[in-house]
Design a protein around this nucleic acid. Sequence first.
RNA 1: UGGGGCGUCGUCAAAUGGCAAGACACAGGGUUUUGGUCCCUGCAUUUGGAGGUUCGAAUCCUCCCGCCCCAGCCA
Length: 559
Amino acid sequence: MEETKRSRDFIREIIDSDLASGKHKEIVTRFPPEPNGYLHIGHAKSICTNFGIAKEFNGKCNLRFDDTNPVKEETEFVEAIKEDVEWLGFKWNSLRFASDYFDRMYSFAEQLINMGFAYVCDLSPEDTRTYRGSLTKHGKNSPYRNRSVEENLDLLRRMKNGEFPEGSRTLRAKIDMASPTMSLRDPAMYRILHRSHHRTGDKWCIYPMYDFAHCLEDSIEEITHSLCTLEFEVNRPLYNWYLEILNIFRSRQIEFARLNLSYTVMSKRLLRKLVEESLVNGWDDPRMPTLSGLRRRGVPPVAIRNFCSTIGLAKRNSIVDIALLEHCIREELNKTAPRVMSVLNPVKLVIENYPEDKTEYFDYVVNPEDESAGTRPTPFTRELYIEKDDFMEDPPKKFFRMGPGREVRLRYAYLVTCTGVIKDEEGNITEIRCTYDPETTGGNAPGGRRVKGTLHWVSAAHSSPVEVRLYDRLFNKENPMDTEEGVDFTSSLNPDSLCTIANCMVENHMKDKEPGFICQFERKGYFCIDPDSSSEKMVFNRTITLRDSWAKMKAKKKQ
RNA sequence: UGGGGCGUCGUCAAAUGGCAAGACACAGGGUUUUGGUCCCUGCAUUUGGAGGUUCGAAUCCUCCCGCCCCAGCCA
């Protein structure tokens, strides 16, 4: 079982009791994205909830595109969304489109007219707003509210056929202009849109509004529990009104709090702005909270699923600490990612007493957390690369790495002692010199000798330069939206969220790996091969660093 | 100031009248050929506030305070 067991949330409790009471024999849910953008991790919460619940209760979950607004929707997004849902690890029972129900919705509208519950209104958008009143003031009835059934039917038909310009008329539900619930003040059911739709083409000149359409979609599919986010709570009376008046299958709408994550933004509008203003490199930029971004970053879908089950389901607005997501990513990758040695910031290390023409192969543990991953041979020669950071000319006491005269372990190879450095004219270290102890094969310290530091390394002759993109949180601020008057959320963009470094050295056997391959660079973090890689130049994305208590200690001292 | 929701640890989140779970974060310690992982310890005498009911209240009642959503022919 990958997902951690947790106590039952309020939605599962409702379902438990609906099953126990016999209200439903089978649970049917749906994930209903509008195909007008890319899915993000907030959607993942909804996907995991809807598909997860269906699975747990042996029910069904449909993937349904809520494509009722041709102005904003495109086929491109349909395909991207399907890919993301599958990647996250879910299978839909049935693939649906709201547009498949347009004919049925139209006849429901006619039915409402016949029942005296709907009318065609000629008020302009501005007048409609005025007539609606305000939060504290009642609305007034539209002068068109009492047209005859015949006239309404005729007008609606002509609206559908494109006889009237956009904005000139709407079909409205006749409910109560004095209702304290705004959504009940004669809400629009259809608006005129002379737009061609990505699936129905030019068949329709009118398109249904969300409130009218969504409950019908749910009812048609016999969705038992229609799960949505909190902002739809005020629409629920209307949702129920349509189903009751029409006397069709009663889906039950239940609202839960949407996911907010610290140090990022989650609204489609803001993410779009980042893309359009080139503040990131597209929707799948690995810094984006989009599923395509996370995928490219190297985040495994199971980490996202575990995250979603850890954060819980409730009705209170909250901002989840991104550290929790990071934890879930590390937790999964630690168990599964093969280890490799890569030197991000290389400096040459020459072993003075090691033969020039010798190559030894040491057993390298592929994943200490997974014995079945086994070992592989890794080549060792006289000239190696190590991290510049792993050497200090004048190291402090707690620095366990290399310094003049100090002995350290080269992982799985030998213990070496630094004998000196070579510098260029400007005083930069160009080479570190050392000697090795032949008695320490495999890095084993004989007789109780204490060697605290272990360094990773690559053989100069068996490694190649690659590009590495180091990613960090997109924003510096916990809540980027919490800005002063007139200050844009982009002001807290983290300038160091992407740091590209060239000429990192990785072991040559990595050349066989495909984009998407995820591994751990020992002591550095988890990395994944980017699709930008070519046979000449590999590109790696850093998914996430390892936890680093040394860096933490250094940072604390600085303060 | 109409209506609908929500307030439990720094962040999520359980507890459904009977001893305030757990996770993350944080702090300290141990193990370690990754300063990783793992292990141990600590971290809410108190649930937005004030009253009340009760042997007993986060939970029930009353009043108050704070935050979110609704005035698209968006979803």
